[in-house]
C-alpha cells in the first residue's frame, strides 16, 4: 500500500499532495519558493491586498510562483464581516481567474477565531455565485455540517488558533467532524511541528493546511520537508489501520518454546 493512488478530491479536482501551505511570513521569495517546493504542496494560499501605488519597486508574489504547477487558494484573511469577505473573494476571482477561495471571517483580533455566524452568511452567498468555498472554521461539528449543507467543497476546522503552534487541541471534535460530514476535512491552523500534522492525518483528516508552522521555523525548508513526510506518514498510518490501544501488554514473541 502506498499513497501514490490515494488522491485528494476537492470539487472534482484531484490532488496528490494532502499538504497545503501558505506563502506568508517568509524571509524572502527564494526561501518561500524552496519551502513550497520541498513541501510537495500543490495548493498554496495567498492573501488579497492593495497594490502599493507609491512604491512600485517591490517584486510581485506571482513573479515567483509557477501557476502551471500550483493551484492558488486566495484567502479572506483580515475580513471581519461577511460583506468584506464576499468582496475580497470577488476581487480574488477577478485577479486569479479561479473559483477556489479559502473563506475566513474573523471574530476577534486576539484569538483570530472565526465568526461562524458571518462565515455561514458569506459561504451561502459565495456558493450561489459559483465559488468553490473552503471555509476556515472552529472545530465545531454542527457548524461544519451547516457549511457542508450550504454547499462548501470542504470544511477546514482549526486545530488551534492561527500561528499558535499548539497542535490538535481537540482530536475528539475532529473525529466527530469526520464522522459528520462527507466533504473533505482539512485541518487549518495550529500545527506547530511534524507530529501535529501526522496526528491530524492519523485521525483520518483529508489534508492539513499550514503557514506559520513552516515559515516560522528556524529552518523553514527543513520543516517543509518534515511536514511533507509527516502528512504522508500520517495518511499511510491511517490507511494501514492502527492497532487498538490496550491497558496491558501483549507479548510480541511467541510464548511457546521458551527454555526451561
Amino acid at each position: 500500500m502506498s499513497n501514490a493512488n490515494d488522491k485528494l478530491t476537492i470539487a472534482g479536482r484531484e490532488f496528490t499532495s494532502r499538504l497545503m501551505v501558505g506563502t506568508g511570513k517568509y524571509a524572502d521569495f527564494p526561501q518561500m519558493v524552496a519551502a513550497i517546493e520541498t513541501s510537495g504542496a500543490e495548493i498554496i494560499t495567498v492573501a488579497v491586498r492593495r497594490v502599493n501605488i507609491s512604491d512600485r519597486s517591490k517584486e510581485s508574489l506571482l513573479d515567483h510562483i509557477d501557476l502551471k504547477k500550483y493551484t492558488l487558494l486566495p484567502n479572506t484573511a483580515g475580513c471581519y464581516t461577511a460583506d468584506d469577505a464576499i468582496r475580497t473573494c470577488r476581487l480574488a476571482r477577478e485577479a486569479g481567474l479561479s473559483d477556489f477561495v479559502k473563506l475566513e471571517v474573523l471574530g476577534d483580533e486576539k484569538t483570530l477565531f472565526p465568526d461562524n455566524e458571518e462565515l455561514l452568511k458569506a459561504a451561502a452567498v459565495l456558493v450561489k455565485e459559483g465559488f468553490t468555498v473552503l471555509p476556515y472554521t472552529t472545530d465545531d461539528p454542527i457548524v461544519c455540517k451547516k457549511l457542508e449543507d450550504i454547499g462548501c467543497a470542504a470544511v477546514m476546522p482549526l486545530g488551534a488558533p492561527i500561528g499558535s503552534g499548539l497542535g490538535i487541541r481537540n482530536p475528539y471534535n475532529i473525529r466527530i467532524i469526520l464522522d459528520t460530514v462527507r466533504v473533505p476535512v482539512i485541518v487549518d491552523a495550529g500545527v506547530g511541528t511534524a507530529s501535529d500534522a501526522a496526528i491530524a492525518m492519523e485521525l483520518g483528516c483529508d489534508g492539513v493546511l499550514m503557514n506559520t508552522g513552516i515559515a516560522g521555523a528556524k529552518d523553514p525548508v527543513a520543516m517543509a520537508e518534515a511536514m511533507n513526510l509527516a502528512v504522508r506518514a500520517g495518511r499511510l498510518a491511517f490507511r494501514a489501520g492502527r492497532i487498538p490501544k490496550k491497558l496491558f501488554a501483549t507479548a510480541s514473541s511467541p510464548v511457546e518454546g521458551t527454555i526451561e
Binding site: G24, K25, T45, R49
Partner: peptide
C-alpha cells in the same frame, strides 16, 4: 464595482473616481 479585465481599455477614469487595485501577496 469590480471591473472585468476586458473593460479596462474602454473604461475612462473620471474626476472623483474611487479605485481599489489589489493583487496577491503572501498569506496563510
Amino acid at each position: 464595482d469590480i471591473l472585468p479585465k476586458a473593460a479596462y481599455g474602454t473604461t475612462l477614469l473620471r474626476d472623483g473616481d474611487r479605485l481599489e487595485i489589489v493583487h496577491f501577496v503572501g498569506g496563510g
